[in-house]
Amino acid sequence: MHITRERLIVYGGVLFFALLPPVASFFGEHYLISLFTRAMIYALAAVSLDLLLGYGKMISLGHAAFVGIGAYVVGIMFFHAADDSLLFGFIGGSENALVVWPAAVLVSAMGALVIGALSLRTSGMHFIMITLAFAQMLFYFAVGLETYGGDDGLPMWNRNRLAGLDLADKLHFYYVCFFLMSVFIFCCTRLVRSRFGLVLRGASTNTRRIRALGVHDVSYKLVCFVIAGAGAGLAGALLANQSEFVSPGLLHWGLSGELMVMVLLGGLGTLFGPVLGAVLFLLLEEFLAIYTEHWMVYFGPVLIIVVLTTKRGIYGLLVGGGGNRGG
C-alpha cells in the first residue's frame, strides 16, 4: 500500500509515543513521562467519546460518568482489599489489575447500558440534557458515599499489581497505558469499518432511511454507547492508578466538557484526532497555567472562536482533505 499522509501521521505518532520516555529521560525531563501518561489516558477516554460524537452522532455530555465509574471500581476494590472487608457483604477487594480493570470496564459498560437505554428514548437536545443529568446524578451519588470518602475522595496507597510489571514504576506504567490506548484505538478503527460500524454510521446520518431498510437504529446506538462507556471505564481505571486517588471530581461534568473539547480540537470522527486533542489540551493546561492562573479566561474565548471558525480539528488540518468532519 502506498504511504498516505494519514498513515505517515499515525506512524509518526506511534513512534513519538514509543520513544518519548527514553528521550525525556535522556534530557532529564522526567515529568514529561507522567504528563504524557496522563495525556494517553485522557486520549483513551476522548477516543471512546469520539465513537459517540463522531460516529454515532450522540452528543453525550455525561461521558465523565463512565470514567468515574471505572475509577471508583478500582478505588473501592482497593479499599476493600486494604482492610479485608467485603463489598455488599460478599465481594472481596482486589489489587490485581487483571481482576480490577476488567471489572471497571464491565461495570462502566453496565452503567452505560442503563443510562444509554433511558437516554436513547429521546434524541437531540433532550439527549444532551439527559446524559448530563444522569452523570450529575452519579456525581452526587459519589459525593454521598461517606464510606468511600464522600466529597474528599478515596486515596489509594499504591497502584494495582500487574503480573511481572511494577505499575508504580513510571516507565512500566507509561508503556502499559501506551499499549492499552493503542489497542483500543486499533479496535475502534476496525469497529467503524465493520458491519456494525457501517450500520451505525448509517443510523446516525439518516434515521428515516435506515429504518426503511429494516434496521432498528436504537439498538446499534445503544451498543455504541455501551462500547464507548467501556472505553471510558478503562480510562477511569488507569486514571485512578495514575493519580492513586479517586474522587467525585472524575464524574463531574466539567470533565465531560473537557473530553468533548479534546475530541473537537483534535478532529471529530477521526479516532486519531482526539489523541492530538488530549495532548494539546494537557500541554496547554500545563504551560498556560505557568504564565497565568487564569488561563481559562483566554482558553474559553479561544474555544469559542475555534468552534465558530474551523470546521475540522487539528487532525483534519494535518491530513488535508482526508479528515472530513463527521468521518
Binding site: 444532551i128 468533548m260 479566561v297 474555544l303 469559542i304 468552534v307
Partner: peptide
C-alpha cells in the same frame, strides 16, 4: 455539538 462546545467555552 458546536453550540454545546461554544457555550461550554462561555462558562469557562
Amino acid at each position: 455539538l458546536d453550540q454545546v462546545l461554544a457555550t461550554f467555552g462561555l462558562i469557562l
